Simulated scan of single mutants.
Amino acid sequence: MLNDAERIPQEQKMESAAAQIYAIQAGLELGKKRGKKLMFAKSAMAVLTAAVMVAGLLFFNPTQLLPQQGTSSVETEDWGVLEPFKKLAAADIDALTLESAIRNDYVQIVNKSAESNGYKITLNAVLADENKIMLLYTGTTSGGQEIYNVNSVWLTDAVTGQSVVDKNGSRSGMGLHAEDSIYTWLGKTIYPLDKNKAFSKEVVANFQIASVDPGMLAKPKTGTNLADMRYSDRLKINFTIDSKFWEQKTETIVLNQPFMIDGQEVKLAEVELSPLSIVVIYTLSEELKTDWDVRNKIFGNTPNELISRVGKHEVENKSNGGSGSEDGFISYFSSNVLDHPKSIRLKLDAGTDREKDEYIDILKK
């Protein structure tokens, strides 16, 4: 579906974000019947962000793409050449990860550009670890064309031309206009990686920019008609990935700590700590693994907050996605592992299972 969604619009009409969410829900029902692995987004916002970015943001006003989440206060320190991306981070539920990476110089500045016929893309920076790679980029237009978005981002091996990520991997992304400019777009795209596979050293980032004619961006129905859209040629940037990203390995902490969700026992099986993500893995009993109604209810109430202590300060690591697995669930959290937290705890909210908030220690130094 992702490959189809990125075709040039003349080849195939793209679905609306709402239709894609409906399709995902329908897929869940099919998964229940087949008893296969359950894969779904942690929240409507997570689904919408990924679907909108991949499908080219058609049928969605880009000025409404990123409401303030209020989940992270962007650091006031100087971000250097990445200073424009503070605006993007301010609207990003995963801002903590980017802030921590920049603060710890865990960034590869690329600043290479490609342009054609009035469209220009600049790959500003790359961040990566064993589990994901993140691209930060800027799209610009000239000749009066107003940027709608960067509607397509591919990542391929420079030698073989093959995708460097799993074809079935669910990329995610977000973007918004630069300060006071409808001709500049700041974007972020994340690709999941398989840490058991070697990553290509020479990579090509391949972009396409979508725009509209002068004055069209402000019109409320812009984006609902494919004929209104203009598209750049594919804009390609070659770069060599910095080897420093593979030096810090993922730390796996095995816990097997039981706790209750809606009267059902769930185990916090293990946690994976890496520079760009914290992954929390839950397992269910054999009986609950195939009880889809109960599984769905439990998944909707899995803990969505980690508390980490850095120095004398406590930091909230918010959940930014989730999925089902054969044995239970997986939740993904923003990461500040590079800040060397003294402790990390999973917060269990008060409710039917407990009278007050409780915590499970994941890391304690």
Rank of each mutant, 00 (worst) to 15 (best):
M1G: 07
D4E: 08
Q12E: 12
A18M: 13
I24Y: 09
Q25K: 14
L38S: 07
S43N: 12
A46M: 03
L48I: 13
P62M: 07
Q69S: 09
G70Q: 15
S73E: 07
E83A: 12
K86A: 04
K86C: 04
A91C: 01
A91R: 09
I93D: 07
L96D: 10
T97M: 10
I109G: 00
E115C: 15
N117L: 07
N117E: 11
G118H: 00
Y119M: 03
Y119P: 03
A128L: 13
I133S: 11
W154L: 09
L176C: 05
W185Q: 07
P192I: 00
F199T: 09
A205P: 05
I209W: 11
A218H: 04
K221W: 12
T224R: 11
R230I: 12
R234L: 11
S243W: 11
F245S: 00
Q248D: 08
T250P: 12
N256F: 02
Q257D: 01
A269D: 05
P275A: 00
S277D: 01
I281T: 08
E286M: 04
E287T: 09
D291W: 13
T302N: 01
E305Y: 06
K312Q: 05
V315G: 12
E326K: 07
D327A: 13
G328S: 04
D339C: 13
K347E: 00
L348D: 00
L348A: 06
I362D: 09
